[in-house]
């Protein structure tokens, strides 16, 4: 799950080296923390969060069989 988000994010941004994804697995949910360079935030969020929504849709759908709830949080790489 982590890898899929990473592939998508790296393809969208201008600084793929600054992309990292941290997976926090819980009992019935998985939190994916996506970090990108500050100037790339718009590339993964988009106008009115359209890109972020599309990313959430595809990642959730890819792991729908898993049964756990997938949450994606986007933050700036420090």
């Amino acid at each position: 799950m982590r890898e899929l988000l990473e592939v998508i994010a790296k393809a969208l941004v201008n600084n793929p080296d600054a992309v990292s994804v941290n997976e926090v697995a819980g009992e019935d949910s998985v939190l994916l923390e996506l970090k990108v360079a500050p100037e790339d935030m718009g590339k993964v969020i988009g106008k009115q969060g359209r890109i972020a929504r599309a990313i959430r849709t595809v990642v959730r759908s890819a792991w729908a069989k898993d049964g756990r709830r997938v949450m994606i949080e986007i933050m700036e790489q420090s």
């Binding site: 393809a11 849709t57 595809v58 759908s61 890819a62």
Partner: peptide, 23 residues
Amino acid sequence: GLIGRRGQALDAWQYLTNLVANK
């Protein structure tokens, strides 16, 4: 998993692929 419920994932993949391919 690439299609999703009512093709929602497919539409999202198409959108993302457009962004990536035309970056």
